[in-house]
């Protein structure tokens, strides 16, 4: 579907709406998402009754949620809706009651990227365990370095009769005293 046509039709329906076209997708504001999705789903012209995919992208200065809509009845699509929110307050209204298919995908995006979908009845982590801190797919997330011996590892090894070299022991002691966790460095990718 040509995004220009969709944009023109949406602007005719909602006069005050702000829509930008970014790479074949329609960038809209979070407060407009629900009415736009509802219109696309219900109107006879579009009948976008199949929400294929929800995902989130980290653009460093902001987070973006992307929705791929298709129509099963009319066999048209996709329409990509893109909603950008600031990193400090990533809140987007949930599409759960319009599309049941959003249930797990919004939970996934929340788990991995930390976007809060307001109105989702059961917004819990889905892949990571309860009590996990951080959101692993954000670009500033640094995973724990598994290759570094921490103090509890040294203790465990010594308890099992393994001799730990003095330099490793010293490093683990320093790490423990500094109160920091061992973190791996992530390869840096260029910003958009």
């Amino acid at each position: 579907m040509n995004p220009q046509d969709v944009k023109a039709k949406l602007e005719a329906q909602f006069p005050a709406i702000e829509i930008k076209i970014v790479n074949q997708g329609l960038a809209i504001k979070p407060e407009d998402l629900r009415r736009v999705a509802e219109f696309l789903k219900e109107s006879d012209e579009f009948k976008m009754n199949y929400l294929s995919c929800i995902t989130a992208v980290d653009y460093l200065d902001s987070l973006e949620s992307v929705y791929n809509l298709y129509s099963v009845d009319k066999r048209i699509g996709p329409i990509f809706l893109k909603v950008r929110v600031p990193r400090s307050n990533p809140k987007i209204p949930s599409l759960f009651d319009l599309y049941r298919g959003a249930e797990y995908q919004e939970r996934e995006a929340y788990d991995m990227m930390g976007i809060v979908y307001e109105g989702h009845p059961d917004l819990r982590r889905i892949f990571m365990w309860e009590g996990f801190e951080g959101h692993p797919l954000r670009k500033d997330y640094i995973p724990e370095d598994e290759d570094v011996l921490e103090w509890q590892d040294v203790e465990w090894l010594e308890r099992h009769g393994v001799k730990v070299p003095e330099e490793y022991k010293e490093f683990a002691r320093q790490l423990k005293e500094s109160g920091k966790e061992a973190r791996a460095e992530r390869p840096k990718a260029a910003a958009e």
């Binding site: 294929s52 995919c53 995902t55 298919g101 249930e103 260029a190 958009e192």
Partner: peptide
Amino acid sequence: ELGFYLVSDGSAQPWRYHVRAPSFINLT
């Protein structure tokens, strides 16, 4: 439907790589 959503920033690595896994969503 198995889908891959890719965002490229012009480098050799994808900036974003997302898998739309059918059996995950069918579990809904």
